[in-house]
């Protein structure tokens, strides 16, 4: 077989594989548009009578609108907080000589080895002591800082030429000014990458919100989705509508920021 034919064959296989990857999404979409799917109706890839009935059920018989708002609010808050705390720490590690710098940086990295799963019991106990069960603050507090973010932003900041800071310092700028006016604008791509990651991990977070949030109108999307399963055991159209609603915002972000997301994963192994 000639080289060209092999190439065409490989590409055909890659396209077939991609179609297989996309199929679950398409099937979810068409199921969500087929009223009574799984019970009275069998969905097909192109629904014979597309209907938004499942979406209406979703928004009328569950507080789904509120749930979306909760997810957006929490994800935005966590992103803003994590970017702020990570960027300031990254600046300290990138631009200061201080006693214990190496050790402290190593300790930051070491915290990445301790997953939330290991801290479930003590963190729950702590939040209960503070009276933060079923509160957004209880969800936010343990995710305020990100060692991964500090690492990522520090890597970017050390590549910013020191001459830029020095010039600003001679002009009378203090550290806050150098940080905000010189360093931050020069690491915009890293800030974008990390912001997307922080948003994505908060948007998709499940275990910790599951432990903290109890009432239906406090829940985030993944939690509400999980409880849909109990409420609509066989109404697959409603459950698929819920999945579509939770996937769409991430999909939109992904389409616009694919470059940052893939670079971030490739450079760090964090997803």
């Amino acid at each position: 077989m000639s080289r060209r034919w092999t190439g065409t064959l490989v590409n055909a296989l890659l396209v077939a594989g991609a179609l297989t990857m996309v199929f679950p999404f398409l099937w979810t979409l068409s199921t969500s548009l087929t009223s009574g799917a799984g019970l009275s109706a069998t969905p097909s890839l192109i629904p014979a009578e597309p209907s938004l009935e499942a979406y209406r059920t979703l928004f009328t018989s569950t507080p789904f609108a509120r749930v979306i708002l909760n997810s957006v609010g929490l994800a935005v808050a966590v992103t803003v907080i994590q970017v702020t705390t990570s960027a300031t720490a990254a600046y300290a590690f990138a631009r200061f000589e201080f006693p214990g710098r190496r050790v402290i940086f190593a300790l930051y990295l070491a915290t990445m080895m301790i997953p939330m799963q290991v801290l479930l019991v003590p963190l729950f106990e702590q939040m209960r002591d503070y009276g933060l069960i079923d509160s957004y603050l209880g969800v936010i507090l343990p995710t305020m800082a990100s060692a991964f973010g500090v690492f990522l932003l520090r890597q970017a900041m050390v590549t910013v030429p020191r001459e830029l800071d020095e010039a600003a310092t001679i002009d009378g700028a203090g550290h806050v000014r150098v940080f905000a006016r010189i360093i931050l604008p020069n690491v915009r791509p890293a800030l974008a990458t990390f912001s997307i990651f922080a948003f994505m991990s908060s948007w998709n977070a499940f275990l910790w919100p599951l432990v903290i949030l109890r009432s239906e109108e406090m829940k985030t999307l993944p939690l509400a989705l999980a409880s849909l399963q109990g409420q609509f055991t066989t109404e697959w159209d409603v459950m698929m509508a819920g999945s579509i609603v939770s996937i769409l915002p991430m999909l939109a972000i992904y389409i616009f920021a694919q470059k940052y997301i893939i670079q971030g994963v490739a450079g760090s192994g964090i997803k």
């Binding site: 939690l223 996937i247 992904y254």
Partner: peptide
């Protein structure tokens, strides 16, 4: 191929 990575585990599990 990368698309499923950014979706939530819960949505994927239900699908």
């Amino acid at each position: 191929y990368f698309l499923p990575v950014v979706t939530s585990w819960i949505a994927v599990a239900i699908v």
